[in-house]
Design a protein around this nucleic acid. Structure first.
Length: 552
RNA sequence: GUGCCCGUAGCUCAAUGGAUAGAGCAUCAGCCUUCUAAGCUGAGGGUUACUGGUUCGAGUCCAGUCGGGCGCACCA
């Protein structure tokens, strides 16, 4: 809408002899009595012009010249807002556009010719996915979908590490459980993985190999088996949720030396050294973050000679730049919140354009069962498993609940609510709106021989003029900018809210306006409006990865 | 102690610096001989944790205070 209003306002400012540095803003007032759209330009310009904002607004109005049949009314209100009311014709022409664009309605061209990398989940194969990981997974998937709507060529990436200390411990944990099955007395140290899944992996090893591995001191077999099994489980869980990745980036690649005998990790050290941000003391190699005003330096290479996780992380991000992505989006949980600033600082020092990096951090998840809050705890065996949650409430509820709160808010996942098949459950409210339209269209086909593909009838939409109809039409108009906002903020929650309000407007329309009982033209027009609403619901559900049931 | 996030109706949460702070649930009152009542309409419910500041205007930005969460390893 900014594209529509801005040039006209610009011209009017010029014609009225008003000069201002301020950018023109168009917003949608919270209340319809303040118009469909409004601008605060008179308020913004008032100071520079040393005039009363209302006076300024009135001076502007005669010069606000819109194409015919677009803006029905312009008025000055409040402290100096200029409010615009769209004409019904304009709104209904937009609804026609929804029908013409179909599945493409809402898509934009912001990212055409550009590439985006979205990294998410990135759990190491040390255990099955927990509920907390699920939130990041769904968030990342939706963000990737949002990028795609704007024409970006999206690569969904999973970064993982199957080497290093944690994997050693994993292998050792499995081995101990295996020995236990062989009848030996074992003691599983507290540092080791306690989860039931370790036992299951050991059991399958025992079933396939009997006691033949008992004497083996070799860990790698246990480690490899655990990794394969756990990765399978992770990928299966993700698949259930409709989450897929195009590339899996193994951290190990960053340790491998090129023809010149230098690893990606080493190149980071060398480059930072050159900039004077590396020092060696206490037997370790440090990134001198104290030079950047931080309290402590950060270890890049441990005294054991192994890199700490920060070093490969920096090297990994460099590969993202080297693979020349225009946008680099990272989705991760609040436990990484202290790390990413260091990575960004390092990249900045090395001359990379960190403005390309977008970061979405999601806060943690608690679950509410029987009205009681249960805290997640990782690494102990009692973390709630994502798979169990999906079994319990289904894919749609899992996905929607994860993104229906702002990512910066702690998520309280009410398991009972998610299971409820009633209006209290937002999943059902959304589904119901879609199913209701489908049912309506089925009846229309039978009783009125309504042809949803007949574009010759589209002009009939212009016969609609009631409040409920116009507000629904106007809401459909909001969809494309809402997607852009959602993407800009990396916040799919905006979509959920929008779709909820769209469903609400449809229900009201359905309640107030008889459809199949109306006279032929009006009936067709209302069916077309319903069809357009269904289209937008579908397009939105697709981005969120939620199903669109035809009946309930 | 320190870095980041959060604090809004009884509960769960909204609100690109804008107009009288909004939804849902719960509570109360209405609407089905009529296209799915899994729905709709209406009412009550608020010192936006607190104190200052910035400005035409602050729930939003800044400073401080108080509460809750997550980090603060030569783990990832």
């Amino acid at each position: 809408m900014l594209e529509f209003f801005s040039p006209v306002i610009q011209k009017a400012l010029l014609a009225a002899g008003i000069t201002t540095e301020k950018a023109i803003q168009i917003e949608q007032p919270s209340d319809h009595k303040f118009g469909d759209f409004s601008t605060n330009i008179a308020l913004l310009a008032a100071k520079e012009c040393r005039k009363n904002p209302r006076e300024l607004a009135h001076a502007l109005i005669p010069f606000l010249l819109f194409p015919p049949d677009t803006v029905a009314k312009i008025e000055v209100a409040g402290a100096g807002f200029i409010n615009f009311y769209l004409s019904p014709l304009f709104i209904m022409r937009s609804v026609e556009q929804v029908l013409l664009d179909g599945d493409h309605y809402g898509k934009g061209e912001l990212g055409i010719g550009k590439s985006a990398l979205v990294e998410y989940v990135s759990a190491n194969p040390t255990g099955p996915l927990t509920i907390g990981r699920g939130r990041g997974g769904v968030l990342g998937d939706c963000i990737a979908n949002l990028f795609e709507t704007q024409g970006y060529k999206v690569t969904r990436e999973y970064y993982f590490n199957d080497a290093g200390r944690q994997m050693q411990i994993l292998g050792e944990s499995v081995r101990l459980r295996y020995l236990e099955l062989c009848g030996k007395q074992i003691e599983l140290p507290a540092t080791h993985y306690q989860g039931e899944y370790i036992r299951e992996i050991a059991e399958s090893l025992y079933a396939n190999n009997g006691k033949t591995l008992e004497e083996s001191e070799e860990l790698s077999f246990f480690k490899k088996s655990a990794e394969t099994s756990i990765f399978d489980s992770i990928r299966q869980t993700l698949q259930r949720l409709g989450i897929r990745h195009d590339t899996f980036f193994n951290e190990h690649a960053l340790y491998q030396e090129d023809e010149g005998g230098i690893s990606a990790n080493q190149r980071v050290i060398d480059a930072l050294q050159e900039k004077g941000f590396i020092d060696k003391y206490d037997g370790a190699t440090w990134f001198l973050t104290t030079k950047l005003g931080q309290e402590k330096d950060k270890v890049l290479v441990k005294s054991s000679g192994e890199p700490s996780y920060r070093l490969p992380d920096i090297a990994y991000h460099i590969t993202k730049f080297e693979r020349s992505f225009d946008v680099i989006a990272n989705v991760f949980g609040a436990d990484h919140i202290d790390e990413y600033p260091d990575v960004l600082e390092a990249l900045k020092i090395l001359g990379y354009d960190t403005a390309r990096i977008k970061i979405a951090i999601n806060q943690f998840v608690t679950t509410t069962v029987d009205g009681k809050t249960v805290k997640m705890s990782t690494r102990k065996g009692n973390a709630d498993l994502l798979d169990d949650l999906i079994d319990d409430v289904g894919v749609d509820a899992t996905r929607l609940f994860f993104i229906m709160r702002g990512k910066d808010s702690h998520l309280n996942f009410d398991v009972e609510l998610a299971k409820k098949q009633s209006k209290e459950n937002p999943v059902f409210y959304l589904h119901y709106a879609h199913a209701r339209i489908c049912s309506l269209l089925r009846l229309a086909l039978q009783e009125r021989a309504f042809d949803p593909d007949c574009s010759a009838d589209h002009h009939l939409l212009r016969k609609l003029s009631s409040q409920a109809e116009l507000q629904l039409g106007l809401a459909l108009l909001d969809y494309p900018p809402m997607i852009r906002t959602s993407l800009r903020l990396l916040e799919p929650q905006k979509m959920v809210e929008y779709l909820h309000s769209l469903a609400e407007l449809f229900h009201r329309f359905y309640q107030e306006c008889p459809i199949l009982k109306a006279e032929t033209d009006i009936c067709t027009a209302r069916l077309l409006l319903s069809l357009a609403t269904r289209q937008v619901l579908r397009n939105g559900f697709k981005i969120l990865g939620v199903s669109a049931p035809d009946s309930m």
